[in-house]
Each structure stands twice: as structure tokens, then as C-alpha cells.
Amino acid sequence: MKIVCLIKFVPDVEEFKYDYQRHVLIRENLKQILNPDDACAVACALMIKRSNPETVIEVVTMAPVSVSGHLEDLLRLNIDQAILISDIRFSGSDTFATTRVLARYLKQTTFDVILTGTHSLDGSTAQVPSQLAEVLGLPQMSNVVALDTSSFLKGKPSFDVEHDTSIMTFSVDLPAILSVSRDSAYKLPYVAYQDLNRDVSSRIRVLSHQELDLQPQETGLEGSRTEVRRSFVKNMIKKDKVILNNDREGIEAVYCYLHEHGFVP
């Protein structure tokens, strides 16, 4: 059994601070973190490996070489190998171009299942997994919150998916792409103390456009079908407002306001 996990490192947007005076984002000292949905996908793979130790887990990411340290942290967690797809030519890729690059690698490797996250924190399009599924001709499902290990090991996993108002259960014939949500209960374990400084660097394979045989026009800005023209902070429209105290008079005014607009009799 081989599981490929597609992972992505994203800026920790929780740390983005907004300056209301100057209407700008403060982006200094942003650190990169493993996208939360993807962390759940990796944790889900580790759970399967605990029931079936022969399972091989490979994490695949397209990212700058600077994420190597993060990959090494993952490799200290019972993950077998990491593929780092890295090339300056790939920078600026939209989901279309990213899908092309990832698909090129995935077509030349073997796997039983691909686990991904559902959303990324930065672009948050949730497009890459479905686009890949189309290119690879695989079934795919987003928002997976639980995966049944025993049916998985038999080659036809059943799994739960969280939808707005319901939990749906599906099963699928492998190979398939299953995209895990951070609303699942899967959590990455901590690195065991004795592994903290283990040298795992030899288990990272770096691939560039040469190994993947990709032409310049297929990747990066040139290979993209969309382009971010500008980004801005949303303007909030100011309204004329009434300011009231939280007292008898204030509450009476609120009551009248609700009455005037038909919310109370």
C-alpha cells in the first residue's frame, strides 16, 4: 500500500495583523506553516500506517527549497519519503499550472490513494485536488472528516464527508483522491524525543523542470490561465449611525427602531 500526501506550506495568516489606521496588512515576520487541512491528511495517512505497518507514505510538495526544514520535521514522523518539486520557473503558477506540474510527477509514480487537504489557507481555492483528479482520471471527494481503515486496506474505503447540514457516507474504488478537512479529528503527533535530531535529509528528493520534462510555457506565470492583477484591503462603507447608551432610553430607542422596520409588533 502506498499513500501519497499532497502538502503545501502557507504563510500563517492568523499572524497577519491589520492596521486600521493606515488600512494595510502588516506582513513582517510571517512564518510558514503546514496548511492545516494538509496536516490532517498526513495524520490520516499515519493512522492507516499504524494498522498496516507496510504502508509507504510519501509527501509531495511544490515549493521553494526553503521548506526543506519543514519536510525534515515530517520525515521524523514515520513518513518514508518526501518529494520536493522546486524550480524558479514554477513560481507564480496558478492552480492550472500547479496541477500540471503535480500531475506530471504523479503520472510517473505509483500509489493506491492520494490524500490532500481540502482548502489551503492562502489562496483557499480548493481547486487543485479536483483539477488533478480530472487530469489523472480519478474519483475525488472533498471535506473528508473520517476514513474507515479496514475497508481502506481492502481497497474500497468508506469515508464520511461533512456537508452543510449532513454527514454523508461514500465508498470509492481505489485509486482515488480524498481531500481531508481540518474539521476531521486527525492530528499530527509530536516527533519522538530520540528522533528530534535524526538526519533524514537523504529521504528528500528534489525535482526540477528537467526531471519532469516540463517546458517553460507550461509552468509559472506563462503556464497560468489566471493572473492576480491587484490585491487590496476591502473598503468598508461608513454609514450614518445612531449611538445609544445601554440604559432605559437607549433600549426604548432600539425597540422603536425594531418596530419601525417590522421586527417586533
Binding site: Q127, S130, Q131, E134, Q140, S142, R225
Partner: peptide, 28 residues
């Protein structure tokens, strides 16, 4: 939920770009 899984597949089939979760349209 389902539309988000259909759109990327269709975009790939047609070989076109896809913009997700659009909340505004502007003519510049």
C-alpha cells in the same frame, strides 16, 4: 460543496483558468 468539485474538473477539460469564490465583478 458539490459545485466546487465540478468547476475545477470542467475548467481542466476545457483548458481554461478558473477563479474561485468570486464575490465581485469589476470592469477595469
Amino acid at each position: 460543496f458539490f459545485g466546487r468539485m465540478v468547476a475545477p474538473r470542467l475548467a481542466m477539460r476545457l483548458g481554461v483558468g478558473l477563479v474561485a469564490d468570486v464575490t465581485g465583478i469589476e470592469h477595469v
